[in-house]
């Protein structure tokens, strides 16, 4: 297992190199640069802008620019945010905990709901309960997150006043106190539900169908022939088989943990990575943008690896070597 992991990690290096080229090229292909949007052209001497371009190296040949960027990048210098005037990694690290908090909460919501509903529906398919769950799920699946987000804010924040509609914490509470954490939790709950319910539908239906499929397998008949109770057959024999694909989803959810909340964060003006990503695009904040994109890529590769390793752990038929 260790050897396998090591080999996979090493194999990531050339992949990341290719990705870095693509990320860099795409960033360069975007029209305009950081000197375009932020500076008032009526007020500034065009020559000065041209000078700055020259000084920042924007006029150097592309490969030189790339080389400079990647050399700094691997040394841990991700560049300075042109917008916030601080190193890109600092601004990212500032937002990262918020996003992870939001995503973890939503992930827990997804898995708890999907497991509960999927197990119920799989065991009692084609009943009223199953059909109700399916109907709710398909509505959830059909609703885009920006619609769901807006509706959630409208109903639960404006009308009922149960949850705040924006931000990640009340500004009046002091950091570190119990009230502070309570407030953070209060702020995260609504966007977490909107985000969490997004995946719940497909995970539930997936688990349900897998349980139904497994319940027709020969090994279930064997377990019955041994006098094993129906609840143990479902909760142990079938569940252990049906949970395998779900566990491997977890690997891919790691990527979403950071990058999956762009729309939700923007709607709830929740200061996280997703929101940062979007503003970086509009501001041509290259260093932040490229650092984030590289981070998403690393996480995608890493998530794939985690999915494969989890697969090897939960399914004895898969051997990693």
């Amino acid at each position: 297992m260790l050897k396998y992991t090591l080999r996979r990690v090493l194999a990531m290096i050339p992949m990341l190199f290719l990705i870095s080229i693509i990320v860099f090229s795409l960033a360069k292909l975007m029209p305009g640069d950081s000197l375009g949007g932020e500076i008032d052209p009526a007020n500034t001497d065009p020559e000065y802008i041209e000078q700055m371009r020259e000084k920042l190296g924007y006029n150097d040949p592309i490969y030189e620019q790339y080389f400079r960027w990647i050399t700094n990048f691997v040394q841990g210098d991700f560049g300075k945010s042109t917008r916030y005037k601080i190193p890109a990694n600092e601004i990212i690290m500032e937002r990262l905990p918020n996003t992870i908090f939001l995503s973890l909460t939503s992930l827990i919501i997804t898995y708890v709901l999907a497991l509960a509903m999927g197990i119920y529906s799989g065991r009692k398919p084609y009943t009223l309960g199953d059909n109700t769950i399916a109907a709710a799920n398909y509505i959830g699946l059909a609703l885009p997150s920006f619609v769901a987000g807006v509706f959630a804010i409208y109903i639960f924040s404006f009308h009922l006043g149960w949850f705040p509609s924006n931000g990640s914490v009340d500004i009046s509470v002091t950091e570190g106190t119990f009230e502070y954490w309570l407030s953070r939790f209060h702020h995260v709950l609504l966007p977490a539900f909107v985000l969490g319910l997004l995946n719940t539908a497909s995970y539930t239906q997936f688990l349900r169908n897998d349980i139904i499929e497994n319940s027709r397998k020969d090994y279930v008949r064997t377990a019955r022939a041994k006098g094993t109770s129906e609840s143990k057959i479902y909760n142990v024999h079938i569940f252990r088989n049906s949970v395998i694909p779900l566990v491997t989803f977890l690997g891919f959810d790691i990527v979403n943990l950071v990058g999956g909340a762009i729309i939700t964060e923007t709607i709830f003006t929740y200061p996280g990575i997703g929101q940062l990503f979007l503003t970086s695009v509009t501001n041509r904040d290259y260093s932040v943008l490229m650092t984030l994109t590289m981070m998403f890529s690393v996480l995608t590769l890493f998530g794939n690896l985690v999915a494969d390793i989890l697969y090897g752990i939960v399914d004895p038929r898969i051997r990693l070597d």
Partner: peptide, 15 residues
């Protein structure tokens, strides 16, 4: 007790 025709699928693969 009963034994079945298909030994390849009659056992639970993950136990």
């Amino acid at each position: 007790a009963m034994i079945f025709q298909e030994p390849m699928t009659s056992l639970n693969p993950v136990f």
